[in-house]
Each structure stands twice: as structure tokens, then as C-alpha cells.
Amino acid sequence: MVGKLDEALRFQQTALSLLAQRQQQLASNIANADTPNYKARDIDFNSALKNAMSRGKSTAAPSTLATTDAAHIGGNNPNTTAGGAPLLYRTTRQGNVDGNTVDMDVERNQFVDNSVRYEAGLTLIGAQIKNLLAAVQG
């Protein structure tokens, strides 16, 4: 029974988790709009969601290296988000003299787009919960 509930909500939950990770990456791009040699990165949401769903589990943090000292470098893979979605580099239309590839228009566009999708996801999962509650309470 609990497994079925989990199954019912898993798609939306995975999507929300990925959208939150993408939002973080976009925030990072925006914060580094003036950093020399910073390369804008993003995740391909479509394939990341397909991957996460086909893995058959939620986007829990991937395994990391054990650290025995505070000075050890974390075992995070620098080419994935904390949830394991692969990070890609954005191709630029207009390069910058200082090597920065953040296009503010693109980033802000994607940021707003992503946050609207996140809210849509929340609305959908809320409706699903209401449906389930209606079924439980009769």
C-alpha cells in the first residue's frame, strides 16, 4: 500500500527535485555573471528526468568518497549536480572578452521558466494528494 502511494507521487517528486537542482545551478550562473573565465552550466532537464525515472529510484544523492578529515576534498563529481544529474556547458552566441559565458538574458529567462515549472509541479502534486485523500476519506 505504502509502495503504491510512493509510486503514485514518485514522478512529480523526482521532477520537483530536479527542478530545484536546476534552479540552484541557474542561481549560480546569475551570481557569477561578472566572474572572469566562469563557464555557464545547466542540466538537460528532459534527459535527466528520463534517467532518474529509469534508474527506478528517486534522485537521492549518489555515493561519495569517505572523508576522515575536514581538510579532505569532498568526493562530489564536479560534472553532476548534488542529485546526480549531468551538468553540461552552455554554448554561447556572443563570447565575452574575459572568458565568461553567462548570457544574462538566457539565464533570467530560464530562471523564471524553471520557477514557473516548479510551481506547476507543486500544484500538480498538491492535486494528486487531494485526490488520494478524497479516496481515503471517501
Binding site: Q24, Q25, N32, T35, Y38, N76, T81
Partner: peptide
């Protein structure tokens, strides 16, 4: 000032 990207709290995306 010269800006530099720094990782935030063990995450892969960076602050500045």
C-alpha cells in the same frame, strides 16, 4: 575587484 567562483557548501554549483 577581481571575482572568483567558489563552491558553496560542498555543492557543485558555485557562488562568487
Amino acid at each position: 575587484v577581481v571575482f572568483e567562483a567558489v563552491p558553496v557548501a560542498g555543492q557543485d554549483s558555485s557562488g562568487v
